[in-house]
């Protein structure tokens, strides 16, 4: 069974650009169009946010886009249907990001099976502890060939980074700073030292740096230290600011960050 995410990292070791957006935002049915437009304009991976009522690790932008999506009537079944539709035309690796409670209520077995059936390649569940994943879910994910990315932060010990390296497939999510999503500052010396510390560990899993990557400059810095970068809130803000044509807004945004 092929996994588009692991395939991608076999082909491409550098400058991997992952774009996050909240599914069902700005409108319920914009998801497929955004996926297609992102693929066409040079994104390498798309991370679909499964909107959650209480996104603990997210800043205002993703809180708001999630609330809008839920108001629009977004559900997990709708998301799966949208991915199924998008998969008729796109080849790009698609991963979903959300909170553990969503999986629990859907039924984890059912959830992972649905992901595999509609063409989702991976998952990021920030509040799923590594120990519980390993004990209860790892074999299920492996059975369906769905990858799972764990997060590491500036506070994560070397031992835990090794554990995340063992348990993650696809990529490791390197949280760029101690913060929730959506910050817009530059990358500072302290962050660079942290990225270098991770590089020096020579992890076997590729790394993508996310949280606070918001423009070309911060993306370039992330590219220097990892296999790629993840842009989320900044992309959502640009979609929010779109007047009229969402395709051209996305095209402009990607031209701006890819250059």
């Amino acid at each position: 069974m092929k996994n588009r995410l692991t395939d991608l990292f076999e082909r491409k070791k550098n400058n991997v650009l992952n774009i996050y957006f909240t599914a069902g935002h700005p409108t319920l049915n914009s998801t497929v169009n955004i996926i297609q437009t992102l693929e066409k304009n040079g994104a390498d991976i798309i991370e679909l946010g499964m909107p959650y009522s209480d996104p603990m690790a997210d800043g205002e932008t993703i809180q708001k886009s999630s609330a809008v999506a839920l108001n629009n009537g977004m559900t997990l079944d709708t998301l799966f249907a949208q991915v199924e539709e998008a998969r008729q035309t796109v080849q790009i690796p698609l991963i979903v990001m959300g909170y553990y409670n969503q999986l629990i209520q859907y039924g984890i077995d059912r959830f992972v099976a649905r992901c595999a059936a509609v063409g989702i390649d991976g998952m990021i569940i920030p509040d799923l502890p590594m120990a519980i994943y390993e004990k209860d879910h790892k074999s299920l994910f492996e059975q369906y060939n769905i990858s799972h990315s764990f997060l590491i932060t500036p506070q994560t010990s070397d031992d835990r980074i090794r554990q995340a390296d063992e348990l993650s497939s696809g990529f490791i999510y390197v949280v760029s700073q101690s913060s929730i999503t959506g910050k817009t500052g530059d990358i500072n010396k302290e962050q660079e030292a942290y990225f270098e510390r991770i590089n020096a560990m020579r992890l076997k899993t590729p790394t993508l740096i996310g949280f606070g990557i918001h423009d070309k400059a911060t993306k370039e810095r992330a590219f220097n230290f990892a296999n790629g970068a993840i842009i989320g809130s900044a992309f959502i803000r640009s979609v929010d600011g779109a007047n009229g044509n969402i395709e051209s807004t996305i095209e402009e945004f990607l031209q701006g960050v890819i250059g």
Partner: peptide, 20 residues
């Protein structure tokens, strides 16, 4: 029903989709 809120598995009021 059983689910996760504020980092703890407990009883909480939620929708079928796990929204609080």
């Amino acid at each position: 029903s059983k689910g996760i809120i504020h980092g703890s598995r407990t009883l909480l009021m939620q929708t079928e989709d796990g929204q609080i």
